[in-house]
Design a protein around this nucleic acid. Structure first.
Lengths: 240, 240
DNA sequence: CACATAGCTTGAACGCGTTCAAGTTGATGT
DNA sequence: ACATCAACTTGAACGCGTTCAAGCTATGTG
């Protein structure tokens, strides 16, 4: 039952320590998070118990719950870390390359590179992220900073590129590419081929296709279809 | 034959009773399933305990585990039931209508109609279904009968219609439409608008679009793009 | 220096899903 | 009639995530 009202006390973040009281809490918080992520990597998510995390970190099990609402909330740390790594990795690609297709391809592969070491338990993470009510859902309000950061990468892909495209489409494309990226991640999570080669092939195949479709979008015959797509996005976005 | 290759003992289905031994087991199985689905509907999935199901059904908790591998496996019953209901509902639409767009639209709305009463806890179901290793995943081997049945609906949508389309595309389209249907379901699960109106709008907007794209696919300028799409599907399907 | 107090820590206890050794039941072969 | 044995049923017990009343600790204040 925890709480039902939307507000109530909200841990999860350091419970608002005073101005400069003690940094000790933050230290414990980090210790627990580091230990948890290490054990997740070593043993997997489901196989790592909260008791084991506490024991390994040398604290009581209740202490972990003082800093994190639940076992799932420990995943948010993983999330944030990988997001930052993707950003950094993407920036390198974007600095070197001007061609739209090459930029998109580089950014997508970089994203997979960053996540690859965690493929075996990304599935479990994904499970908890998939629940719409979960704060870890990529569509949730709590995730919106991470989501915006991710969409920003795709905006950079477009804006720094030499591609010419319809202004209306240009406005929507970053979010569409992000949505496509979510699809790639979904595919990757389910990908059981060695080293997730199918996902690599999906990227290599889909990028030229997107590139071609984006170019074709300026064709006169396709103009109505494009308008129709943009109208659909608009219609669906209205949330009433 | 319930189990296939990898099998050790495989419950989940009635444990292969002899030719005409006892129908008693099947009765108990049904009783447990009915009770579980009723309680899920009344209280929600997470709030329904296995103990409560057993108590309400008048059996021991261990007995539920004789017929169902886990609490999640009870959901398969829900799955199968809704699949059958969708099929039945779709057939009515398909009997009356010859136009491709109208057929597709009718089938999609029928699918949502069937699931609508369960929207509030479909989210929880979805969570467990999303885990790739889960037998409930729509992509899992265990789900392949249900998946094939669902794809068959979309094959009927195409085959009974007056639409003319590229033979190669025709071959792939049922599966593509099914994939799109999974996307609609995903959207629906996350849809918080009253009575999931956004999902209805998504269907109403996407169907004419698909109809248009399918028609356009016979255009000469789009021929290479279509080929490219089909080649991508082929490449990605190879699982090595 | 002592005290009050906010920040932090504890671990027993709860209810959950799940397991399993031990039972019961009834159709079948003799 | 009896024995057999696979099918079915039982419920105590296990380990898990999570909660919470109680305790500890260091700092700002009198």
């Amino acid at each position: 039952m925890t709480n039902v009202t939307t507000a109530a006390t909200d841990p999860g973040e350091p419970p608002a320590p005073g101005p400069a009281r003690r940094a000790r809490g933050e230290q414990t918080r980090q210790l627990i998070l580091e230990t948890a992520l290490r054990l997740f990597r070593e043993r997997g998510y489901a196989e790592t118990t909260m008791r084991a995390i506490a024991k390994e970190a040398g604290v009581a099990v209740g202490n972990a719950y003082y800093y994190f609402d639940s076992k799932e909330h420990l995943i948010q740390g993983f999330y944030d870390r990988n997001q930052a790594a993707h950003r950094a990795s993407a920036e390198q690609v974007l600095a070197d390359e001007k061609d739209f297709a090459a930029r998109l391809r580089g950014v997508l592969h970089a994203g997979i590179d960053v996540n690859a070491p965690y493929h075996s338990f990304a599935a479990t993470f994904f499970k908890t992220a998939a629940e719409p009510s979960s704060p870890l859902s990529p569509f949730s309000r709590e995730s919106s900073p991470a989501r915006d950061a991710s969409i920003a990468i795709f905006r950079d892909v477009i804006e720094g590129s030499s591609a010419k495209l319809d202004p209306e489409l240009r406005k929507e494309l970053p979010e569409l590419l992000w949505l496509g990226w979510m699809g790639v991640i979904l595919f990757w999570v389910y990908d059981k081929s060695p080293e997730q080669r199918r996902t690599r092939r999906l990227i290599d195949g889909a990028v030229p296709l997107i590139d071609r479709l984006v170019s074709l979008s300026r064709l006169r015959v396709l103009r109505p279809a494009l308008r129709q797509i943009l109208a659909l996005i608009e219609t669906v976005r209205r949330d009433d």
